[in-house]
Amino acid sequence: MAVLAVLAGVLIFLAVEGGPAVFYKQGALPAHATSFWQLAGPLAFGSLWVAVIALAFAAPPAIGVALAATVYAPNQRFGRLLAAVLDLLAAVPSVVFGLWGLMILAPLMGPVDAWLGRYLPWLPFFAGPPSPTGRTVLTAGLVVAVMILPIMAAMCRETFALTPTTLMEAGLALGATRWEMVRWAVLPGARSGMVAGAMLGFGRALGETMAVAMVLSPTPFLVSVNVISSDNPATIAAFIASTFPESRGKQVGALIGLGLVLFGVSLLISVIGRRIGRKAVPA
């Protein structure tokens, strides 16, 4: 009831203020865009691109940490300690992540970008020219990866912990090594949980604002998979945050419209994730 009202309120306010933006023409839009979709399209790409990179970097360690906290934990204390570390990481404010990414990670990433640009330029991701500052999509993706890692790891940890002990023992009793036991007794049952966790992380990565806004200095309307250049596509959330303070009137409406687009995409991702999460163990 109350929650419904709040949600309805959110939707109504956004729609009233942002809806008309879809039809705005040049002049009313920020960054001198000629139409709403010319603005929204590249930004949506940027958001998805950064989120994909973050997911690719975060998924393997998230699963690894979840295994470390459950199957591989030498004792219960270690599992609890690891859970606390994850909680702590999840609780670090995103602005602090941004600060860290910018001041600590980006300088370290500069040489990495240069190396990738020199030796792997035939991959479209590393076409370069490499940014000397390290303030690249790659760095932003890494920062966001660290941010979503605890969310995904927590989800995986929960599903791994649900594996019946008897199933793991069945694997071991058949002469499986620890890894084989994990591979055949733990992972198959946890597949849906892992995918749901990945979706959750992906959704969070899409909406992540501050870290991206601080690390990247975006080029408007750019669509590029190049992750080491200093010309970066912007993300919806970061664009809103960085443009909002200087926007007036209809421009604000356009930003709210962009927010609607972001909301729509996140919603879609979370619906898919929940579908998969709810699905029983695949036969």
Binding site: T166, M181, W184, A283
Partner: peptide, 25 residues
Amino acid sequence: MVFQKANPFPAMSIRDNVLAGLIIR
């Protein structure tokens, strides 16, 4: 070993359950 409660691998078919020891290896 055979356990107190039957514990076939739920994600595997009957056939694969029989072969589980080999599949695992």
